[in-house]
Design a protein around this nucleic acid. Structure first.
Lengths: 319, 319
DNA sequence: CGTTGAAATGTAACCGGTTACACTATAGTA
DNA sequence: TACTATAGTGTAACCGGTTACATTTCAACG
């Protein structure tokens, strides 16, 4: 392996001079610079980032923790993060962990910090677990909770309101499927729906569903479909399952009931009918998260949250 | 930041002793070990991985290049890789680049090597670009090409044959949509189909399609559907688009024509009808890739390829 | 009792960069 | 002419680990 000392020897200069040339710092004569650059090119020398990181404590790496790679919502967030950080020469160090596994989370954070990452982006922790973290840090997929960390939240309040807006002119009895309200993001969304429904004097029922199985949820929801003319699901996967199940039962959507999903999953365009939904703009969430992180890395110390807008997408599962 | 010298001073021992305890190497008395471990715990000391990497030239990081994070095929491969490497204490350093951008590829590989990654996993290069790479290295999503690098290939030959098997008892005229045969994986698959069709004396036509736009491809394919009783698409997304388009035209699948996709995308279960397809088992591809890489890292120098089995999945778009 | 060897520990070089500080040569200034 | 400032370069410490080699202690053995 070629080192900076090899280059220095070949060029008959000191390592300091070579270092200055690599980093465009300090004073070097044109003549020396040209000679050394030529040798660097000939030997195909690349400075070792590890040695650099050890001294400078800056690695040009960002640590990212993602709950689930097979969930498009998260991959789009990463895509957004990636787009920003690579522009500034950072590389992504990625680990995978469910939000609930706090021990693993702390372990990954330690690993990141042991590798001197310049910043860390993680999904939101469900419970406050008092993580030890000494590196610039932002959380995505969070509710708008005010505390000492930078949170990137989707506009869940608007998301809830938009869900109702999509139905308010045509639905009189709405079934709202939801996950446990202990999840702060869900809580924000559902509370916003309730506020809106009360304002509009529309009937509704809340149905808490098992977090894990959309197909079972679909079955049990459809048992009572006759009482409702619209269903709001936890996300598009649940909506797609209900559509699938209603095809089997020969129910017509939106005629027998309308349905509104959440997330604007790619599925929405391929089901029959296509699914009306709310787009959280995950790629934008990722971009905002990365931008905020870079600000922190560069010395900004504001801890204000960022709220990312949501977009209602009208398709054929509603009137 | 706590360093090994801090710990040594607190425990009244030398750094060598502390290092021995951390790494379970060399001889240390029980008494000393207990005392030092206690201090490590109290101070919450974690050894700096960067310093370690600099001396040992092993980083416990694996570099991964992925073409597209929003393609579930690739995320599942990463999932498989991840499952194996994390078991052995490795972390994933991930970069994103289309296979065709050779300059970027080389740049990412350099970046990995500058960070002393222990191994690299990338998707297959379309053209042979003579990459400079001095690190254990495997390629996934490759055709079964014999050369000096370890390639993990899907069993494209079987994949082609299985596509035909799914149709051979009911189809007489098959339209085979495909991408340019300059892509080695596609070539393997299509050639296998042709061999099989000739053997069975079934009529077929090849239709090369634009790589980028499934919806346009669907339109043009359906213009000629009447001549065929079955369509084999490039992948499930193309199949889903054709299904969508045929709903609009009031065509019935599989009655008007059958359709077979490729990849077993999650979409397949949600379209109407559901899509018959071939599963490449991407997660298994990832696992195999990671296992082969770990073997290389541990000194095995075989360059034999690995072929991963494919599974036909019969659903409702075929008889 | 002197010798041998293993256990326990310490010293310092090393990994490959960066940078504070020192030094030299030369141009500009009083 | 003596002094100062600055451009250009070099020396060596430093980042925080690992490890080859040296040293000390003490039990076992002939």
């Amino acid at each position: 392996m070629t080192t900076i000392r090899d280059i220095a020897k070949l060029a008959n200069v000191s390592v300091a001079t070579v270092s200055r040339i690599i980093n465009h710092s300090g004073k070097v004569s044109m003549e020396t610079k040209d000679r050394v650059k030529q040798i660097i090119k000939e030997t195909n020398y690349h400075p070792n980032q590890v040695a650099r990181t050890l001294y400078q404590k800056r690695s040009k790496m960002i640590g990212i923790i993602i709950p689930d790679l097979n969930n498009r919502f998260y991959t789009q967030i990463i895509d957004g993060i990636q787009e920003i950080i690579q522009k500034y020469g950072y590389t992504a160090l990625i680990s995978f962990s469910a939000s609930s596994d706090n021990a693993k989370y702390q372990q990954y954070i330690n690993n990141f910090e042991n590798n001197n990452v310049d910043g860390i982006i993680t999904s939101a922790f469900t419970i406050n677990p008092n993580f030890q973290i000494h590196t610039p840090f932002v959380m995505y997929d969070s509710a708008n909770i005010k505390d000492s960390v930078v949170r990137i939240a989707s506009d869940n309040v608007k998301g809830g309101k938009e869900s109702i807006d999509l139905l308010k002119n045509s639905a009189k009895n709405i079934l709202i499927q939801h996950w446990p309200l202990t999840l702060p993001t869900i809580k924000e969304r559902i509370e916003s729906m309730i506020t809106e429904l009360n304002k509009l004097h529309i009937n509704f029922v809340l149905e808490e569903t098992s977090e894990s199985d959309p197909s079972i949820a679909a079955q049990s929801t459809l048992e009572k479909y006759q009482q409702f003319d619209a269903i709001i699901t936890v996300n598009d996967l649940y909506a797609a399952r209900i559509i699938k199940e209603s095809q089997r039962r020969n129910l017509k959507i939106p005629d027998d009931f309308q349905i509104v999903g959440y997330d604007n999953n790619i599925l929405c365009e391929y089901t029959y009918p296509t699914i009306t939904t709310i787009d959280q703009q995950p790629e934008l969430i990722g971009k905002v998260a990365a931008q905020r992180l870079l600000q922190l890395i560069n010395g900004d110390d504001s801890t204000q949250n960022s709220i990312v807008n949501v977009l209602p997408i009208k398709r054929n599962s509603t009137y």
